[in-house]
Amino acid sequence: MLDALTVAVAVTALALAAWCGFAAYRDQPTKDWHFIGMAVVSVLALGQLVVGIAQLARGEKAHEGTAIFLAYLIGSFAAVPAAGFLSLAERTRWGSATVAAGAVVLAVLEVRLYDIWGG
């Protein structure tokens, strides 16, 4: 897998977590700019999903198995959008906290993805 892409997703996810965590700390709901940030992270995660599937299709093997690799790819694509949708309905600081938690989950998934692919 593209290590650069994995690192990029993890770093942007952590940045998003810090940003939304800061919003939660300041008692603010998620705003348009936060959603743009979520979109950026989600597009990167989608790119990773596409690249991952392409590499599997080319016959490359994930160290810990194809099923686990695919499950983590899909999970890491879904994490931030799902948290974002939840925060749409919760217009308080807790919506921001949820998105921050979702971004942390994504960063953890990226670390696992790196291990699953490389071993």
Binding site: A71, G75, A79, A82, A83, L86, S87, A89, E90, T92, W94, G95, A97, T98, A101, G102, V105
Partner: peptide, 21 residues
């Protein structure tokens, strides 16, 4: 599911997906 409950549901949801799969 409101206020801190949303964060709680989110974390439980993540743990559910992780543990079930």
């Amino acid at each position: 599911v409101q206020g801190p409950g949303l964060l709680l549901v989110w974390l439980y949801g993540v743990m559910s997906v992780g543990a079930v799969s």
